[in-house]
C-alpha cells in the first residue's frame, strides 16, 4: 500500500528526515516510536502533505501513485488520513457541517453523489458510536472549546466518517487520561479492516497496549534505527531509548 524510499525532508532549511525507508501493506499496524525531536511527527505530516516541510529527496508510493505529487486534499481523497496531534479549532463551523463537507468531497472524488444533511444524520448515528459520543456533539463548532480528550475523539470520529485506507495517528495518546485513551484506541480498533493500514506515531508504549502493532520502528535523528515486532515496544518501555541511540551514532 505504502512504500517510502530514502525519504529526506527539511523545514526552514534544516534537514529533519535523513533517509527513511518503510513498506506498509494492507491489514498491517505499524508503530513509529522515538524520542522527542526524532522526526516521527514530521514523517506523519509529510505523508499527509503538510506545506511546512520540503521533501528534498526520496519518494513515497501509495497505491501505485506518487504521493508527493498530490496536494493534501488529493491525498485525503485518495484515502490518506492524518489524526492531528493538535487538532485545529474552527469557530462557527459546526462539526455536522464540517464532517459532511469532508465526506462529500471524498464521495465526489470517487464519482459518487453527495449526501444531504438528512441522509448524513444516518451516517453519523453509527459513526458516533465508534467514539462513544452523543449527537449534541455534532452541533458544536469544530474543536472550539473542546477538552483535550474531546479533540482526540473528534479526530477518530473524522477517521470513522472518512473511512481511510491509510490512517496516520500522530501522538493521538498525548494529553489523554486513561478512559479517553481507551475510547480512542477502541475506536481505532473498531475501524481496522484487512483492506486498510494504520501508522501509530507515539512516544510511549502505553497506547500500544490497546492498539497492538504488527511492526515497531524506532526513529532517531531522522532515521529508522531499529525495526521489530511488538515486543520491541516493551523493550523500549523497560530500557528507554538511549541504548539504541548511541550505537546508531545519534
Amino acid at each position: 500500500m505504502l512504500t517510502i524510499t530514502d525519504l529526506h525532508a527539511s523545514a526552514g532549511g534544516k534537514e529533519i528526515l535523513k533517509g527513511i525507508s518503510l513498506t506498509i501493506n494492507a491489514g498491517e499496524v505499524h508503530a513509529i516510536m522515538g524520542p522527542n525531536g526524532s522526526g516521527k511527527s514530521t514523517l506523519a505530516q509529510v505523508i499527509a502533505g503538510h506545506p511546512g516541510y520540503e521533501v528534498t529527496g526520496g519518494s513515497i508510493a501509495y497505491e501505485g501513485q506518487d504521493l508527493l505529487d498530490l496536494e493534501a486534499e488529493e491525498r485525503a481523497q485518495a484515502g490518506v488520513f492524518l489524526a492531528f496531534q493538535y487538532p485545529v479549532e474552527i469557530p462557527g463551523v459546526t462539526n455536522a457541517y464540517f464532517l459532511r463537507a469532508a465526506y462529500n468531497e471524498l464521495r465526489k472524488a470517487r464519482g459518487e453523489d453527495e449526501v444531504d444533511p438528512i441522509e448524513f444524520l444516518d451516517v453519523m448515528e453509527e459513526k458516533l458510536k465508534v467514539v462513544e459520543m452523543d449527537a449534541s456533539f455534532m452541533q458544536r463548532s469544530v474543536n472550539a472549546g473542546f477538552s483535550g480528550g474531546e479533540k482526540k475523539r473528534n479526530e477518530i470520529l473524522q477517521m470513522a466518517v472518512l473511512d481511510p485506507k491509510l490512517a496516520v495517528l500522530d501522538e493521538t495518546d498525548s494529553g489523554l487520561d486513561i478512559d479517553a485513551l481507551r475510547i480512542v484506541a477502541e475506536g481505532v480498533n473498531k475501524l481496522k479492516k484487512p483492506t486498510n493500514a494504520t501508522i501509530v506515531v507515539t512516544h510511549y508504549q502505553r497506547l500500544l497496549n490497546y492498539i497492538v502493532p504488527d511492526f515497531v520502528h524506532v526513529l532517531a535523528g531522522g532515521r529508522i534505527v531499529r525495526s521489530g515486532g511488538k515486543e520491541l515496544a516493551l523493550e523500549l518501555e523497560a530500557k528507554g531509548y538511549d541504548w539504541l541511540l548511541e550505537p546508531a551514532g545519534v
Binding site: 499527509a48 502533505g49 503538510h50 506545506p51 511546512g52 496536494e71 493534501a72 486534499e73 491525498r75 485525503a76 481523497q77 488520513f81 492524518l82 492531528f84 487538532p87 485545529v88 474552527i90 464540517f98 463537507a101 469532508a102 468531497e105 471524498l106 472524488a109 473524522q158 472518512l162
Partner: peptide, 8 residues
Amino acid sequence: FYLKSRGI
C-alpha cells in the same frame, strides 16, 4: 492544512 487533510 487541517481542512485540506480532510479532503476539502
